[in-house]
Computed example of a mutant assay.
Amino acid sequence: MPNKDGFFGEYGGCFVPPMLEPIMKEITEAYEKIKDDPVFKEELYYLQKHYTGRPSPVFHAQNLSKQLGGAQIYLKREDLNHTGAHKINHCLGEALLAKRMGKKKIIAETGAGQHGVALATAAALVGLECDIHMGEVDIYKEHPNVVRMKILGANVIPATHGLKTLKEAVDSAFEAYVQDPVNQLYAIGSVVGPHPFPMMVRDFQSVIGREAKEQFQEMTGKLPDNLVACVGGGSNAMGLFSAFLQDDVNIFGVEPAGTSFKTGDHAATLTLGKPGMIHGFKCYLLQDEKGEPAAVNTVASGLDYPGVGPQHSYLKDVERVKYETITDKEAIDAFIELARKEGIIPALESSHAVAYAMKLAPTLSPDQTILVNLSGRGDKDIDYVVEKYGKDYGL
């Protein structure tokens, strides 16, 4: 998957204005050509190893596991990648593709800022201009990443309409892309958007799962019993899950329940949404009474999207992946707990996955294992956490 038209079952596709149809076809053909090109693969592998720092390690969180009882928790340390998250995996691929296609600029949206930082980094490396569209609310919440993007030479463009978060950043980036699709490549930041992006981003992120599978077997002599990853758009989760879909492994995607299940208080798309259209593709979608994308909210800026990757939508329907939810409070608790038990400060997005693993572990036997994709580090979140929740944790 996907099929030639970009569908995972009934989800996905490429629903774009007529003027963009030949552009999307050009991107698809260029990607299909380079993905099996030995020269491209060698260049990408070199950068993954010597620039990103791959392979990222798998770490046995023994202190946390002992405290919780039950299953043993392991962490795939994507937070240790250059730029601090999994996003660099596909950003390097997209930047190299843009360079091959003769583009002058790469543009993108960002929520938590990790994709923006990674893309600005990749753009600087390969010598391309870079525009990052970011909601005004997220610019405030994720100020350290905004500064990093500017230092790297990117233009940070505020999205000032609507809720001023991730959806609006995508809207803004799409509007800018339509103005000049010839000289720009829209480097979408997750497994969302029109075909070929859900496929392409998944493929670049699949290095996570391939590494983790080999590393875990080397460490323990077997596959993990359970996989856990947070899901907003869903790129870090698809990166881990893709290598294990044919194996006898339980797989859990974790969405943000926010502060309640009232519309506008959460971003639990697969849990409470229904099939719909957004940003050029079909997926599960949180919708208002008019069928338009609903307002969303979560403590983790990188998860506040009303849609989700089409492959996740398909995996929900065929019941290969079980999608669960974690509240803002549970995510903050996990953020603090992992820091104080293992000396690792996770991103608030990743904290949702950690929180679910913390709930799951005590329900399982000690011979069971849980592998969590720790998709990013929490440097970007510390000011926000201290300001909003510091008193509750003695900060």
Score class of each variant (00 low, 15 high):
residue 168 E to G: 06
residue 90 H to S: 06
residue 54 R to H: 11
residue 20 L to C: 06
residue 230 C to A: 13
residue 321 V to A: 07
residue 65 S to R: 04
residue 44 L to P: 03
residue 252 F to Y: 15
residue 182 V to Q: 14
residue 393 Y to K: 10
residue 216 F to E: 12
residue 286 L to F: 01
residue 38 P to H: 03
residue 268 A to N: 04
residue 100 R to L: 01
residue 28 T to F: 04
residue 214 E to P: 05
residue 278 I to H: 00
residue 300 A to V: 04
residue 231 V to N: 06
residue 171 D to M: 07
residue 97 L to G: 07
residue 331 A to N: 08
residue 261 F to P: 04
residue 379 D to C: 07
residue 200 M to R: 13
residue 173 A to K: 00
residue 239 G to K: 12
residue 259 T to H: 06
residue 72 Q to H: 10
residue 134 M to E: 11
residue 241 F to Y: 11
residue 39 V to N: 11
residue 236 N to V: 10
residue 85 A to R: 01
residue 115 H to C: 11
residue 392 D to W: 01
residue 240 L to V: 00
residue 359 K to W: 07
residue 271 T to A: 13
residue 251 I to A: 12
residue 288 D to G: 03
residue 107 I to M: 11
residue 284 Y to E: 10
residue 85 A to G: 13
residue 28 T to G: 03
residue 232 G to V: 01
residue 84 G to F: 04
residue 20 L to I: 04
residue 308 V to L: 07
residue 352 H to E: 05
residue 209 G to I: 12
residue 197 F to R: 05
residue 93 G to F: 00
residue 349 E to A: 06
residue 178 V to Y: 15
residue 352 H to C: 02
residue 318 V to K: 10
residue 304 D to Y: 00
residue 202 R to C: 07
residue 352 H to V: 03
residue 11 Y to H: 09
residue 247 D to M: 11
residue 253 G to E: 14
residue 164 K to G: 00
residue 194 P to W: 05
residue 162 G to M: 03
residue 147 V to S: 08
residue 269 T to L: 03
residue 265 D to N: 07
residue 100 R to V: 03
residue 83 T to I: 04
residue 290 K to C: 08
residue 365 S to T: 15
residue 395 L to I: 13
residue 44 L to N: 02
residue 27 I to A: 08
residue 382 I to T: 13
residue 288 D to P: 00
residue 289 E to V: 06
residue 269 T to Y: 06
residue 209 G to W: 14
residue 111 G to N: 12
residue 384 Y to G: 00
residue 117 V to I: 14
residue 248 D to V: 04
residue 178 V to K: 15
residue 352 H to T: 04
residue 13 G to I: 04
residue 103 K to P: 04
residue 220 T to V: 02
residue 149 M to G: 01
residue 87 K to R: 00
residue 388 K to F: 05
residue 356 Y to Q: 13
residue 369 T to Y: 05
residue 154 A to L: 08
residue 315 L to F: 07
residue 75 L to G: 04
residue 245 L to E: 12
residue 10 E to H: 10
residue 302 G to H: 00
residue 325 T to A: 01
residue 334 A to V: 02
residue 190 S to T: 11
residue 326 I to C: 02
residue 211 E to D: 13
residue 375 S to Q: 02
residue 314 Y to H: 08
residue 378 G to H: 04
residue 143 H to Q: 09
residue 395 L to M: 15
residue 113 G to E: 11
residue 168 E to D: 15
residue 116 G to A: 12
residue 141 K to A: 08
residue 264 G to A: 08
residue 197 F to V: 01
residue 326 I to F: 03
residue 334 A to S: 06
residue 178 V to H: 11
residue 272 L to D: 09
residue 270 L to G: 02
residue 277 M to N: 00
residue 274 K to I: 02
residue 290 K to N: 15
residue 336 I to M: 14
residue 303 L to N: 02
residue 101 M to F: 01
residue 389 Y to F: 15
residue 31 Y to T: 05
residue 380 K to R: 14
residue 301 S to Y: 09
residue 239 G to W: 14
residue 52 T to W: 11
residue 197 F to E: 05
residue 380 K to I: 02
